[in-house]
Design a protein around this nucleic acid. Sequence first.
DNA 1: CATGAATGAGCATTCATTCAT
DNA 2: GATGAATGAATGCTCATTCAT
Lengths: 209, 209, 209, 209
Amino acid sequence: MRKIDPVKHEQKRRDILEAAGRCFAKDGFRGASISSICSEAKISAGHLYHYFASKEAIIEAMAATGLEHAEARFNHLMKSDNPIEGLIAEIEQANTQSCSAQQHQIDMRAKKQLHVDMLAEAGRNPAMAEIVNQHSTKIRGMLATLLETAQKRGQIDQTLDPDLAAAILLSAMEGVGNMTMRDPELDMKKKLDMLSTLIKRFLTPGSGK
Amino acid sequence: MRKIDPVKHEQKRRDILEAAGRCFAKDGFRGASISSICSEAKISAGHLYHYFASKEAIIEAMAATGLEHAEARFNHLMKSDNPIEGLIAEIEQANTQSCSAQQHQIDMRAKKQLHVDMLAEAGRNPAMAEIVNQHSTKIRGMLATLLETAQKRGQIDQTLDPDLAAAILLSAMEGVGNMTMRDPELDMKKKLDMLSTLIKRFLTPGSGK
Amino acid sequence: MRKIDPVKHEQKRRDILEAAGRCFAKDGFRGASISSICSEAKISAGHLYHYFASKEAIIEAMAATGLEHAEARFNHLMKSDNPIEGLIAEIEQANTQSCSAQQHQIDMRAKKQLHVDMLAEAGRNPAMAEIVNQHSTKIRGMLATLLETAQKRGQIDQTLDPDLAAAILLSAMEGVGNMTMRDPELDMKKKLDMLSTLIKRFLTPGSGK
Amino acid sequence: MRKIDPVKHEQKRRDILEAAGRCFAKDGFRGASISSICSEAKISAGHLYHYFASKEAIIEAMAATGLEHAEARFNHLMKSDNPIEGLIAEIEQANTQSCSAQQHQIDMRAKKQLHVDMLAEAGRNPAMAEIVNQHSTKIRGMLATLLETAQKRGQIDQTLDPDLAAAILLSAMEGVGNMTMRDPELDMKKKLDMLSTLIKRFLTPGSGK
DNA sequence: CATGAATGAGCATTCATTCAT
DNA sequence: GATGAATGAATGCTCATTCAT
């Protein structure tokens, strides 16, 4: 007679988070209103608070799960034996819409937008800063490990500090990702080729003098 | 009957813009209120509307003048004969606080914050998108010209497309600049050294295979 | 098909009423929420409505049973042959914490708070006004009867109208009880001694001129 | 051209305070809404916040000014040479509506209601508790001084501690004042006569044994 | 020029209550 | 009996903007 169904509850949470993601991408964390999120999620204003304690909590949950997904994907792509190839695969994955053109492009754009919003938010919201920093540290660690392994194999320059090199590479990749916002007129394919070149030259052994 | 003094008027506009910059850096474009800007600028709420038609207008004007300053500084630093040296100078200028430590660091952080905010805003505000894009295009043009000249002189790799290379370089620099937000624990000096290495390897002739 | 157990039902009602009492004392009738009462009573929000039709109904039931308890205690203490002694006993009972200091003091304070809240509520809620008035009339009747008996015995001034004197005495006692709220710094023991003096002088025969 | 008119501002504050008083008396501090106060004061919801920082601030200001008025009136009535006469005058002033029957009675009732509400609020709002306590302490001091003087003149019993006696008298008066809420059916005139008797017997010299 | 009074829509959040299970 | 999901109106408060002076 009395049951708590944690599965349904969790599913609803995810639904709301997705709706919130669409609203945040369109209007920003501050610009999106609770009522717009509720409309998008097709629930009443009051009911949202059975799932999240506050707007802040929604933002944090969304940032956290979003970054976890990114992390998982990155982790998967780093399985390659060659870090250069892995990075390039990751870049292409993150910046191109391969199949279901229209819909995917929207998701892509929304993800980039959320990413930049999180960075901006991190600058003034300590909770967000910590989420972003933890995620960044994790990803950096993964890449650093990969670089170290590759160094031992002689695939990449052995004089580079793996951690610092990872930091710089990820920053550069992020910067190039943001170009969609800054310079939407540039051809994505050409940018990615040039980025590949940059990465190869940076990492290739013997190029360090 | 006497006309307004256009010089004074322009000065007041600049004062307000500076005050707005401080508020926006602290609270974001949406988070900062007109009344807080007026307090900071020491004018009354109503009076602000003699200088700007709306909050939107303030945001746009601030973005525009802010980017013009950045542009001017970049232009000045690109005067060097060697683009690699120029870029590194620019990076250091943009990421370190040389003299009046405390105050400067605050300004630095505020500028970075505003920069990211503008990027985020550009994603949803077409007016902001155009401002950011125009500025980006200008800076990219400058750097591309410089790279082209250097290619002719044989200082850098001649196989690189100057425009694309400039785009990638600027993106990477921006990404590294944003690291302060993502990973505040990393040592700035080391990051800049690594970035220099990246740029050198990317541009140095003969490294292309 | 089996009927509800009226004993259990009544017990649950009492449990809820007690929980409600704690919440109301802490946050007031308006300030306490149904959900906080349900938490305190360890039942679900919806289930409460099997026992009470509305928040209003809870408030009224709580006021009624609370006053019935007060009434019973008063009735018991008025059993004494001498009304002066009885009143003083009642005052001490109502204003001091004899044994389990800490806990009792909390209960004391909560009761006083509820008492004042009821009075305030009575001013704008006719249902509450009637409850308070009925209770007050009953208690006043008891005391009046007692005074009348004592007058016949010559224990107290015979010129006093018993009903009016009872009203005034009860009011004064209530006022002194409320002093805990108004002037918490005053010593309770001394106040009670002074109140005893007041009562004695008021009632003692021959003091009327 | 530019003027701040503090007189007008202060007048508006008072207007709002009066409107708030009416709303609070009708619905209680918690029950009255900002929007109802604004309707009553004929201003917009937002504009109220130019005059008061919060609802809390309105409540406190209203309590403070209300008690100041009461204090002033009390002070004036205590000018009499005989404290017994003064107190009785005060009681009558506070509990009867002499002239403009209808309107005054409403004010009277509203004042009593607010008084009880303040006491209830003081039990859980420290700010209100302090306001009530400060006022109470002041009034008590006045009365104690008066009693002391009268003791020296031999007008009242010299064995009573003036401060405690003042506390008890004020409490009793308050309790009787609250009777309007508890027992509205009782005749006010008779109650006041009986209260006079109580006071006289309490204070008259020689009645202490 | 410059002020600050004034507006009214909008915000995040809370709450008493209902209902399907 | 008993649960917790669901509602939607209401609350205190903020804000960009306008306007009389």
